[in-house]
């Protein structure tokens, strides 16, 4: 019996120490990691989506909301006006969360483009969402007043062969981003007007 208790005790203590130190570590490293991701992953993606914008999209970030509900919005200035906003979103993919950037053209009420940032999908199948720009290009120009869906669900986006879950996840994430956009639109317009000046 004593041995049993010892076993349980040792394992518990080890787990507690391990878990505690790891959560401490993560808490401290999170901001640095996010900065890295911003610089090295999202930055290029944002630049890619907002090609031709006259401002510096990565540095010009709007923060909306307070505290926990704070969300970041990038924007691109075209022809002197901040026309395109980029929302961050997340979908549930086959191998885990898929980070997505959704650019919305405010004047045309349409998608300006999407870009996958972080993902853990299968190479050659789900990963095509990121690696195959032609697939992502399907989203460009789709109206945001209509729900984005894959053809199998009655929409207009043809799914990646063998990766329907990933395709759906990207569509869901896009819809989520659009919904958020509609929600914060007044706030956003206000802020952007401030920028335009």
């Amino acid at each position: 019996m004593g041995e049993m208790i010892k076993m349980v005790l040792v394992l518990t203590v080890l787990s507690i120490i391990s878990g505690g130190s790891l959560s401490y570590l993560e808490k401290n490293l999170k901001p640095i990691q996010e900065k890295q991701i911003m610089q090295l992953v999202k930055g290029p993606a944002v630049r890619q989506i907002l090609q031709g914008a006259s401002n510096k999209p990565v540095d010009d970030v709007l923060t909306l909301g307070e505290g926990k509900n704070a969300s970041k919005v990038f924007y691109g200035v075209y022809e002197g006006k901040p026309k395109v906003v980029v929302m961050e979103s997340e979908g549930k993919g086959y191998g885990g969360p898929i980070g997505l950037l959704v650019a919305i053209d405010m004047e045309k009420q349409a998608l300006h483009g999407i870009g996958v940032t972080t993902h853990t999908e299968t190479g050659g199948l789900g990963a095509e969402a990121k690696d195959n720009p032609e697939w992502a290009a399907q989203f460009t120009g789709k109206s945001i007043n209509k729900k984005i869906q894959v053809t199998g669900d009655g929409g207009e986006i043809s799914a990646i062969g063998g990766a329907t879950i990933t395709s759906r996840a990207v569509c869901d994430a896009t819809n989520k981003a659009v919904a958020t956009y509609q929600e914060i639109k007044p706030q956003l317009t206000e802020k952007l007007q401030g920028v335009a000046k």
């Binding site: 040792v10 080890l14 790891l22």
Partner: peptide, 22 residues
């Protein structure tokens, strides 16, 4: 126990690498 110990250090390495050598 070994796995717990090793896994802890692996996660440490992973997090540190993610932060400083992305």
């Amino acid at each position: 126990c070994y796995i717990i110990i090793i896994a802890t250090f692996v996660i440490v390495v992973e997090q540190v690498m993610k932060a400083f050598a992305f």
